[in-house]
Design a protein around this nucleic acid. Structure first.
Lengths: 116, 116
DNA sequence: TAAAAACGATACGGGTTCGTAACGAGATTG
DNA sequence: CAATCTCGTTACGAACCCGTATCGTTTTTA
């Protein structure tokens, strides 16, 4: 439980992964969009706009826009809550799973290649 | 030399770090800006606009703008090359070192806290 | 020395994002 | 019911970023 990583190792891995991601011309997600995407996939739902807004400490319209972008890329999907029709549930998609899987493999191989 | 990391561990660590970064209200750098910053600090110089442009596979004006932003945040600094006055060298700053150090500690502690 | 090449910065039009404020739809309260 | 609250979204003006094309400066070439 837990991986020991020196700060320098962390930076080295991150640098390789970040550069690789930009070079590959992956969708240029902002830090917020990426954090939101990871949150939806790595934590248990249900995920709502309000909840994400509070977790990330950003405004609700910012969450709405991030979801607009991510759902346009088909990385995430909106579904209206049957129990409370004011709410919208943010759900995962197949494409999003594949996207994150690929990204995680970039990081993993960057870690394997790290020397620092 | 090299750290073994499963894709799921990588995502778990990344999620914690990304969410933490957004919550802390750190400067909201784009993927490109972050990659450029990491490149300047983690690889040997000298770093020029043209070189960074080629390494990241993005246009020169995009690099100029990224440097504009990063130097406005005092995370990076321009210095004209004495040998070739057409060139501009991108250099590190104290504030940038501190910024990356803090960020790397977020990642390291996220790795330590990871369970996946 | 004149012409060509290379450097980074700027102009431009189009797209995206920001936070604040207001909005309509739905749920809750009295 | 009617008033109020809560949900996510939209409107707005300002700021940022994109790539292409062009610019001024400096260096190299012929």
């Amino acid at each position: 439980m837990g991986i020991e990583l020196t700060p320098n190792q962390a930076l080295d891995i991150w640098c390789r992964a970040a550069v690789d991601g930009v070079r590959r011309d992956a969708p240029d997600l902002s830090a917020r969009q990426l954090a939101l995407l990871l949150l939806v996939y790595m934590t248990e739902g249900p995920h709502t706009v309000r909840g994400l807004s509070e977790t990330l400490n950003i405004s609700k319209p910012a969450v709405t826009r991030a979801i607009d972008r991510l759902s346009k890329l088909d990385l995430v999907r909106r579904k209206s809550d049957e129990n409370d029709r004011r709410s919208v549930l943010i759900q995962r998609t197949v494409k999003g799973s594949i996207f994150l899987r690929e990204y995680s493999e970039i990081v993993a191989s960057a870690a394997l290649a790290s020397t620092a």
